[in-house]
Each structure stands twice: as C-alpha cells, then as structure tokens.
Design a protein around this nucleic acid. Structure first.
Lengths: 215, 215
DNA sequence: CTCCTTGTTGAACTCTATTCAACGAAAGCC
DNA sequence: GGCTTTCGTTGAATAGAGTTCAACAAGGAG
C-alpha cells in the first residue's frame, strides 16, 4: 500500500513518527500495529528496518539525544565566562522548541531497555563536558564529577518543572541554575584544593553574571 | 502448592519479591510466570491480589516510595539549621541501605504507567517539604519551587552517581549538595525579594555548616 | 522486454498477560 | 465429630501483542 522509498527516507520517516508517538504516550501503550498503521506500512517493514520494538524505541531515543546535543553544541565556540549561561540558554531553547523530543529522552522509559540508560548517560556526559570544560575540568576528579553530574540532574528537573508550569522567566531560571553550579563548584574546590587550584576561578566568578551572590 | 496465608502476609510477600525483582531488571524482563514461580504460587493468585502486572508494579513502586519517606521523616523534628544536612544524611543512609528500593523508585520505568510518575512526583514534593519547610517556604513562590525541584533533581543524580562510583565520602557529597542549595536559594531570594524576605536567612546561612563559601 | 535487486507485504506463529470456573483448606456452626 | 461456609488458591483456556518468514512487486539495469 505504501510507495517504495529509499532506505534513508523510510528510516527517517519512521523515526520521526516514533518520536511523535513515544513522546506523548508510554512504551507499552504504543503497539507495533499502531506504528505501522500510522506510517502506512506493514508491521513486517518495521522489523526489516529495526530489529524489533525495543530496538526501534532505542533508535528513537538516540535520535532525540542527537537533537539535544546538536542544539547545545554551538556553545563550545563561545568565550569561557559566557559558556555556561549561553549553553544553558541553548539547552532551554531546545527544551522549548522540541518539548516532545526532550520528554521522550528524559521521561522516556529508562526501564524499557538497558541501552536507553546508556544513551541518556552518554548524552549527559557530553553536555556537561561541553558546558563545563571551559573551567579547566577536562578530566574531573571525583568531587567535580559528582558536582557536575548533580548539576545536570538539577537542570533536567528544572526543565521539566519549567515545561509544566512556565511561571518563571527563562533568564531567571538560568540564573538560579548557574548560582547552584557556582555554589557546588566552589565547594568542590574547597574539598579538593589540589584540583581546585586548576579551576579557572575567573570563569567561576563570571558564572553569576555580575550579580552578587554572597549573603 | 503454596500454603494458605492471610491476605496481608501474602501481599507483603509478593511486594517484597517484586521489589527484589524489579530493582535489578526491567519491567518487561520480569514475566508474570517468573514472579509466580519464585513466589511459589500460581499466576492467577497475583491477579487476585493486584489487578494485573502494571498494578502490581505500581504497588511495588509505591512501597519503595513509602520506605524512602519513612527514612527521611525523622528529620522534621530537628532544629532548623541542621535540618537540611541531617535530612540529606538520612536520605543517603536510605540510598545506601536500600539501594535496590531506591533504584526501583528512580530508575524504575516512568514510562510503564502514568501512575508511577505521580508517585515519584508526590514523593519528591513530600521530601522537599520535609527538608526545606524549616526555611519558611511552606507555600513556595515559583522561583523557590523551581529551585527546590531542581535541587531534588541534583540530589537524585548525585545519589545514582554515588551508588555507582563510591569515590566521594558521604559527608563531602552532602556539603556539595548543600552548597548548591544555598547558591540557588540565595539567588531565588534575590530574584523574588518579597518572598525572599520571609526566608529564614539564618537557616540559609547555616546551610553550609560554617565553612565559608564566598570566593 | 526481461531480469534482478530489494523494498514491501500479510498471514502464520510464539510468547505473555489475562480471565474464570472449579478446587480445597481453614473457620464457624450444630 | 461431622457439616457447611468462606475465601485463598489453582490451572487450563483465552486474548492480544510481538516476531518470523516465504512470497510479492516496484523500479532500475542490460
């Protein structure tokens, strides 16, 4: 019933559809039959392109992760002091523009397949590397790694809250998160002075954009 | 084949088993047959106690959430300045002692059933209320709500990292997170001075346990 | 026009969740 | 003690979703 497409076009069509379906509904609620019906193809074709339902879902999540990385990537070309703020702004731009893909990535079933957890994890690491490496934290010591990882958790949680309520201006949200990052990095530098010495303190000080934070 | 038990005993047995199974393996990977076999009962009995597989999973997640809340609850009786640190310590005690239950709650499939998301959400709110309400933030304004929500995200992310690596002392991890909380709350108070005025600044100052944070 | 590659199909199959009518072990009654 | 009632428990039957595979046909190559 469906016209003959090239491999790439068909894959792209199916992935786009998967993104649309899985970002609003749960993994179990979307059946293979429904995907095939909406795409105008037979079930068998989905198995021809992806090995099965789980593999298809993993591919969709990987696509969403790629979109997110692509959105945040440009920030690496910016001067260091601005990197965190601009990177965060790009992050929220993406969250706003492609809310479905973001939801698919974050709320998406971590329990569906172990591979999904790996994708989310790698994406987090890549993002934290892009946003933070300007502070001289290429190979982070444990305290800095945990701080960075925790901060990414804060950013994700804030994003989901922001999508739900939308009652805080984006700029204020960024200031909040950057202040939290500053607090944690400063504390990490205190806990591990040796590694903290290599921390670019001017970049750290620039995090909160000139507004005084100290009580 | 199985001896006749009271309703409560059987429910408890099955929930405990579910906690053990679902904390290490994905929802789809655990079949009803396996649950029944390990419990020494027939499949039908599981349907008699819980309405189905999803409902059973939801009950398991709810149990894990209850355990977590119970573990953090004692902190509400403590003096305010210490509350955040002690609450966090209790939180990590639980994470350490009942890692499976914690994983089931956090890594657990949010995509399995909408109800699961609700449970996790309510648990987060309850925890943030218990740990933070000492700072006079009963009905948080948006900026404070987002800050609190983001901070919980940071705590969860740090917990998972901690379980995985175990290369940062618990006390240091707590200091890191508390510093992050302090940074965000201070910034929130600046963004919303009206609400910030009601913030217990002495409690806030006490967050980072006397160690200076300012650069 | 014919052949050949390969995107595509759909019916058959398997595996797992779900249902339900019947069983039997404890509790209550005479 | 025997009888009845209750209800925890069973397992075979059913339903529905994921998976497989042999065959089909659209489009290009010669």
């Amino acid at each position: 019933m469906s016209s003959r497409l090239t491999v790439d076009a068909r894959r792209a069509q199916l992935l786009e559809l998967g993104l649309r379906l899985f970002s609003t509904r749960a993994y179990d609620d979307v059946s293979i039959d429904e995907i095939a019906r909406e795409a105008g193809i037979s079930k068998g074709l989905l198995y021809h392109y992806f090995g099965g339902k789980k593999a298809f879902y993993v591919a969709v999540v990987a696509l969403a992760a790629g979109h997110l990385l692509q959105a945040v990537a440009p920030s690496v070309n910016l001067p260091r002091p601005e990197r965190a703020r601009i990177g965060l702004a790009a992050y929220f731009d993406f969250v706003e523009a492609r809310a479905p893909a973001f939801s698919a990535l974050m709320r998406g079933g971590l329990g569906v397949d172990p591979e999904v957890g790996g994708i989310v994890d790698r994406t987090r690491r890549a993002i934290v590397a892009m946003i933070l490496d300007g502070a001289g934290l290429a190979e982070p010591r444990p305290a800095f790694r945990v701080a960075a990882r925790a901060w990414v958790g804060a950013v994700e949680a804030a994003s989901l809250d922001w999508l739900e309520h939308r009652d805080v201006p984006r700029e204020e949200l960024i200031s909040l998160l950057v202040a939290g990052l500053g607090g944690m990095l400063a504390q990490a530098a205190m806990l591990d002075p040796e590694a903290g010495a290599s921390l670019d303190l001017s970049a750290l000080a620039g995090l909160w954009s000139g507004k005084a934070l100290t009580p």
